[in-house]
Design a protein around this nucleic acid. Structure first.
Lengths: 355, 355
DNA sequence: CATTAAATGATATACGTCTATCATTATCAC
DNA sequence: GTGATAATGATAGACGTATATCATTTAATG
C-alpha cells in the first residue's frame, strides 16, 4: 500500500479534492463539519504531505538570511568562509542563502538587520544572538510573521527562537574543568587555577565560567578571572602580570578569544621543564590554537565545530519551514576535544574551482 | 534567471527533449554528435537535474539495507535501537530501511546477507565491515550492479566501498594517548601503561592500539596488551592478574568491549586514594561506562556517537544513489570525549508514541 | 418562496522529470 | 534507388501538490 495522497484523503472524507486542499492549506471558507471530516481522514490515513511534490509545485526557494558578526579574523571569519563555500551546494537544494555581516555585540544594528531581512522577504533567519530587548523585539516581529528563527553559537531567550544550534557552554566549561582535573589527577598538591575570559557580560563566557567553577571549585583554588575584552594585547598584559604575581599557578582556562595574546604571555616565559608549566585549556580550533598546541603551549582545545553547526542550523531552518517537528537533538553540538596528537587535518582553504 | 531545465538544455543543444533525456539518462541510441552537443549544453548552462522532481516522477523509494552485528547488548544493540527509532522519520523521506541482524565477525554469513539484499532489490548497502575475501567479493558484486556501499564503524578495503562513516581509529587511539599523557602531565615519574583490547586481529582494535603506541611509546613504558576477546569474564581474570603482577601500573587504555569485566577488576581493588589508582580511558558511552565514570572508576570515555554515524551513513547513501559527489568530510566523525562532569543526558529510551 | 451569501465540486494548468509510443528523418549497405 | 536500421522528434501521461476559476449546491435571511 502506497503513501496516501490528498486525493485519498478527500475520498475518505467524502469531500472533493478542492475542499481537502482548503482545509490542508488553511484557505478558509470551509464549513466546520467538512473541516473535521477532513482532519479525521488525515489522521486515519496518516496522511503526510509530500514536501518534495509541494515544493516542486510551488517552485519553492528557501530564502534564508544568516546574520553573522563581521569581526575580522578568528571564529566568525571562518564561519563566514565556510558558509560561502557551502553556498553553491545549497543552491542545488533550492536554498538561497543571504549572508549579512553585522557589527558584533551591537543590538540596535542586529535588530535593524533582522527587520530588513524580514522586509526583504525571508523564509528563515539564522542569527548569532545578542541578549537585548531590541533584538528580542525584532525576533518577535519575525516570528509573528511565522518566519522560523534559529540562533547560532550564542543563544537567546527561549521564547525568542525556534531552535538553538550550538554547544552547551556550561557543559563546555565543565569539560574544561574535567581536563584540568585530569591533568592534576596523579598530583597530590592542590591546584591553583586562573580563568581568562573576554567578559562576564557575554552570556556564553559567563556560562562557560560558571560550569567550570561548579566542577573545579571544591578541589582546587580558583583565582578571580581576568577580563580581557577578547583583546590580545590586553590579554597579554594582564596574564603576564598575573603569572608574575602568582608563581604557583598550575592551570589556565582561556574561555574567550584573544589567543595570540595568551601565546605571547606563555611563550615569554620560556620553555623550561614542561611539568612545571601550567596546564592550558582553550577554546576554538584556529590557526593560533593549532600552532600553540603543536608547540606545547596549549594542552587541550575545545572546539565547537563551526562547519557542523552551520549545516545543522540550515537543516533546522528547512525542517521548520516545512512545518516539521524538530527532533530534540536537532541543535545539540558535542564539542570536540583536541590535543597535540589528534589534530584533524587543516581543511583545504581553496576557493571553489571554476567561475 | 531561474534554474535551467532539461528543456532549456535541449533547446540550447538544438535537439529535442527526448534526445536530451536519452543522453542524460544514458538510454543509448544517440549519435555521438548529439551526445557531445547535449553534454556541452549541460556544461554551458550548468544544468543540474532537479532530484526532487525526478524522484517524484519515478515514485522513487530508496531501499536501503543495513546489516548490523546481532551481538546482544552493548554498542550494536544501541545502534539497532536507534535505527529502528529513526525508521518512521526516514519513511517520510522516501526511504525504506531494512535492518538485518548478522552474526558478528562471520564473513560467510555477512557475504550471504549481502548477496541476499542485492537479490531482494536494494538501492544502497550499509555494512559493518569484516575484512575477508568473501566479504570483499560480495561487496564487489553489489557495486558491480552500481549499488552504493557505505561501511559503518568498521571499514573495509578502500576499493570495496564508496564511503566509510566512522571514526578514525588510529586518531582515537592517539586521543586516548593524549588523555593519558595529560593525566601524567604534572608528574615527574615515568608512567607504566597497560592496554586492554579484544583482539589484535580486529582491524579497529589494531588501529587504536597502533595510534596509541605511536604517541605514548617514547614517553612511557607500555606493557604488552591484554587480549580478552571482548569477553568480560576473561577481561576480569586477565586484568586482575596483571594488576597484581605489576603494582606500578599508572594507566589503563581499554580499547575494546567487555567493560563490565574491567569494572569488576578495578572495583575489586577497593577505593583507596584516587591519586594512587591508575588512570583509565575507555571507549563507547553505554550504561556500563556511564556508571563507571560516575563512580570514578573510569576517567575518560571516547565515544563514536552512533546516532550521528547512522544519520551520516544514510545521508551518504542518498547522496550516492542520487549520483552526487560526496564531499570529502561526509564520513568523518569526530569522537566525543566524556568525563565525570560533562556526561550528556541519557537519551530517552521510550518507543515511539502512537501505533 | 425568492434572494443573497457561503460552501463545495469540478476542472484545468503548472512544477520538472521519467517513461513510453509512434511517426519521421538520416544513414548505411547493396 | 531500395530497403533495413539507426537516430531523432513530437507528444502524452504520470508523479503529488498548489492555485485559480467557475459552476453548482446548500444554508441563511427576510
Amino acid at each position: 500500500m502506497r503513501k496516501p495522497t490528498l486525493h485519498d484523503v478527500a475520498a475518505e472524507a467524502g469531500v472533493s479534492y478542492a475542499t481537502a486542499d482548503r482545509v490542508l492549506n488553511k484557505r478558509g471558507g470551509v464549513a466546520k463539519k467538512s473541516q473535521t471530516r477532513v482532519e479525521a481522514a488525515i489522521a486515519k490515513l496518516g496522511y503526510q504531505r509530500d514536501i518534495t511534490a509541494a515544493n516542486l509545485s510551488r517552485r519553492r526557494l528557501y530564502r534564508f538570511h544568516v546574520l553573522l558578526p563581521n569581526a575580522a579574523g578568528g571564529f566568525f571569519a571562518s564561519l563566514r568562509q565556510l558558509l560561502s563555500e557551502q553556498e553553491e551546494a545549497q543552491r542545488k537544494a533550492r536554498q538561497a542563502i543571504t549572508i549579512t555581516p553585522v557589527p558584533p555585540f551591537d543590538p540596535t544594528a542586529l535588530a535593524l538587520e533582522i527587520d530588513r531581512a524580514v522586509g526583504a522577504g525571508c523564509d528563515g533567519l539564522c542569527v548569532v544572538a545578542v541578549n537585548h530587548p531590541e533584538v528580542s523585539a525584532a525576533l518577535g516581529r519575525a516570528r509573528a510573521q511565522s518566519i522560523p528563527v534559529v540562533t547560532l553559537v550564542a543563544d537567546s531567550a527561549e521564547g525568542d527562537r525556534d531552535c538553538y544550534v550550538g554547544i552547551d557552554n556550561r557543559t563546555a566549561g565543565r569539560t574544561a574543568a574535567d581536563l584540568i582535573l585530569l591533568s592534576h589527577r596523579r598530583h597530590a598538591q592542590r591546584g591553583l587555577i586562573l580563568p581568562v575570559m573576554g567578559s562576564l557580560q557575554a552570556r556564553d563566557h559567563a556560562e562557560r565560567y560558571a560550569g567550570f567553577c561548579e566542577v573545579v571549585a571544591d578541589q582546587m583554588a580558583v583565582l578571580p578571572p581576568l577580563e580581557t575584552g577578547d583583546d590580545p594585547t590586553r590579554l597579554n598584559q594582564l596574564l603576564t602580570a598575573a603569572l608574575a604575581a602568582e608563581p604557583g599557578i598550575t592551570g589556565l582556562y582561556n574561555l574567550g578569544a584573544g589567543v595570540p595574546g595568551l601565546i605571547a604571555a606563555l611563550d615569554h616565559r620560556g620553555s623550561d621543564n614542561i611539568a612545571g608549566r601550567p596546564v592550558v585549556v582553550s577554546h576554538e580550533l584556529c590557526n593560533a590554537t593549532r600552532k600553540a598546541v603543536a608547540d606545547g603551549l596549549i594542552d587541550a582545545v575545545i572546539d565547537q565545530k563551526p562547519a557542523q553547526e552551520l549545516s545543522q542550523a540550515l537543516a533546522a531552518l528547512i525542517a521548520l519551514s516545512d512545518g516539521l517537528a524538530l527532533d530534540p537533538t536537532a541543535g545539540q553540538i558535542t564539542p570536540a576535544v583536541h590535543f597535540k596528537h589528534n589534530m584533524p587535518p587543516q581543511p583545504a582553504a581553496g576557493p571553489n574551482k571554476g567561475a
